[in-house]
């Protein structure tokens, strides 16, 4: 199948519209908070004795000028849009003079590492379990898997994370309590010792993400499997004397995977933001934790930068789903819609 250029252009146009709208909302919402991040930063500096009250006024004015906070809102907005369009995300207020793009670059891989892995694992495991439970010709024992999975999916991730920390990290001391790596070890990616340490730290946050999302995949898959099993083409496939495995994989699973893959792509777009609370609880050096910190400090450029990054992720995931879906389901064509 060929993708018509007009379709791609249309989708990209749609993507730009989404980005623009989302970026605008992204700009306005933090501005609603009745706080002054610059003043807060200065108060902090004064409290820690790093700044005298005489120098404070001057410092505040220079910071305001630097971040353009002295200008009217509409001017700030235009500057923001213009900079965002050029992917110039500016400097963090709290971590001045760090660039926002640098902070994103440093944190995003930590998040991708454990969230991506746990999302893919949850998708694969959940889909397989759901398919086996939903298909009537498999062992009835599989259905015993559902209640615990449903229970885990009903518990919010951050609660489960706290429970896991308490029992596995605090009581049993099997896992570290917090962080992405031990402070006692050199941060050297070529050192296998360090890699193992990173893995050890990522296991618990990953496990809490995995357990929480596993049930959703399994439940969704099971209900789709039950629906598909009642379809005429399954009955006819059986009347054709096909092997059970072929009916299961080629006829049932192949058809149920369509909606499942859509959800996966959407989930991958949300990957970074989905872990914000879990990362905060584990003090994980990921992008979600960083976003939480930025919101608490009202670090405008950092919030804008990270959220915009997330929006781009979701929009790209949507675009990819739109483009690959006709390959997965021949009934959907590029021409319509």
């Amino acid at each position: 199948m060929r993708i018509p250029p007009s379709y791609v252009l249309k989708r990209i146009g749609f993507l730009v519209a989404v980005l623009f709208t989302a970026a605008t909302i992204n700009f306005l919402i933090p501005k609603l908070a009745p706080r002054d991040p610059v003043q807060e930063l200065i108060n902090q500096r004064i409290a820690s004795g790093g700044l005298t009250s005489e120098g404070a006024a001057e410092f505040r004015d220079s910071l305001r000028t630097l971040y353009g906070l002295d200008k009217p809102l509409w001017q700030q907005y235009l500057t923001y849009i213009w900079n965002t369009m050029r992917f110039d995300l500016g400097y963090s207020i709290v971590d001045y003079p760090q660039r926002v793009s640098t902070i994103i670059g440093q944190t995003v891989f930590w998040t991708l590492g454990f969230v991506f892995t746990s999302t893919i694992l949850a998708f694969l495991l959940g889909t397989v379990v759901g398919a086996l439970v939903g298909w009537s010709k498999t062992s009835k024992w599989f259905s015993w898997l559902m209640p615990p999975l449903a229970m885990f999916s009903a518990i919010p991730g951050f609660i489960l994370a706290l429970v896991l920390i308490y029992y596995l990290a605090f009581k049993a001391q099997l896992f570290p309590l917090r962080g992405g790596y031990s402070a006692t070890i050199d941060k050297d990616w070529s050192n296998p010792q360090f890699l193992l340490d990173v893995l050890h730290h990522a296991l618990l946050p990953g496990l809490s993400m995995l357990l929480v999302s596993l049930g959703g995949w399994a439940l969704g898959m099971r209900s789709m499997m039950v629906t598909v099993e009642g379809q005429d083409y399954i009955t006819f496939a059986e009347a054709k004397g096909l092997r059970g495995s072929r009916i299961f994989f080629r006829y049932a699973l192949r058809n149920t995977l369509l909606p499942q893959v859509t959800s996966l792509a959407m989930q991958l777009g949300l990957i970074v933001s989905g872990a914000t609370l879990v990362e905060s609880i584990f003090s994980y050096p990921g992008i979600g934790n960083r976003l939480g910190g930025a919101i608490r400090a009202l670090d405008y450029p950092l919030i804008y930068g990270i959220v915009f990054f997330l929006i781009v992720g979701i929009a790209l995931a949507t675009l990819i789903v739109d483009l690959i879906y006709p390959f997965l389901d021949p009934r959907i064509s590029y021409s319509g819609g």
């Binding site: 005429d232 083409y233 006819f236 054709k240 080629r250 058809n255 997965l328 389901d329 021949p330």
Partner: peptide, 16 residues
């Protein structure tokens, strides 16, 4: 022993 099904509209696998 072969069967010709009742609802031909749904008797074929839509993705094959």
């Amino acid at each position: 022993l072969a069967m010709i099904p009742q609802g031909a509209m749904n008797a074929l696998n839509p993705v094959m």
